[in-house]
Amino acid sequence: MVEEQIMTIYTGTKGCLNSLEIGQVRKFLVELCTYLKTNKPQFQEIISSTKTFTEEAEALLKEAIQEQMDRFLLHEQA
């Protein structure tokens, strides 16, 4: 899906994965995708309805990345 591609490219190119070990990246991205669908469904709705990566979509994605990163790192350290 396009929104998953946007999520992956954005997360990688904005340096959001820099704090992870290489072996953690795939797991994080899978969990981020699930988190986005569950907690920020507006992200997918915006992308599919407008066919663009709007500022609102970017804000939702940034929030989701930060929230999921906090959860992910907490879980990985446990």
Score class of each variant (00 low, 15 high):
65 I>Y: 02
22 I>T: 07
61 L>Q: 08
28 F>W: 03
45 E>V: 15
65 I>N: 03
27 K>Q: 11
14 K>Q: 15
69 M>W: 04
46 I>V: 09
34 T>E: 12
63 E>V: 07
58 E>A: 14
33 C>Y: 12
65 I>C: 05
34 T>A: 14
11 T>E: 04
20 L>W: 02
5 Q>E: 14
10 Y>T: 05
70 D>P: 00
74 L>H: 08
42 Q>K: 12
20 L>Y: 00
36 L>T: 10
54 T>E: 13
5 Q>K: 15
21 E>Y: 06
26 R>I: 09
38 T>K: 13
44 Q>G: 09
6 I>A: 05
14 K>A: 07
4 E>F: 14
67 E>S: 10
53 F>A: 12
71 R>K: 15
40 K>V: 13
56 E>A: 11
77 Q>F: 00
58 E>Q: 15
77 Q>G: 02
66 Q>W: 00
36 L>G: 01
63 E>F: 10
4 E>M: 06
70 D>E: 11
46 I>H: 00
21 E>R: 13
20 L>I: 04
8 T>F: 07
57 A>K: 07
78 A>V: 05
6 I>T: 09
48 S>F: 08
60 L>F: 09
27 K>M: 08
74 L>F: 05
70 D>M: 06
16 C>A: 03
72 F>R: 04
10 Y>I: 01
44 Q>E: 13
35 Y>F: 15
12 G>P: 03
1 M>H: 15
28 F>I: 08
64 A>E: 10
76 E>D: 07
72 F>C: 04
76 E>S: 10
30 V>L: 12
67 E>A: 06
35 Y>N: 07
48 S>W: 05
76 E>T: 04
18 N>C: 10
29 L>Y: 01
64 A>N: 12
40 K>I: 08
28 F>D: 01
31 E>A: 05
36 L>I: 15
73 L>I: 03
43 F>P: 03
64 A>P: 07
48 S>T: 14
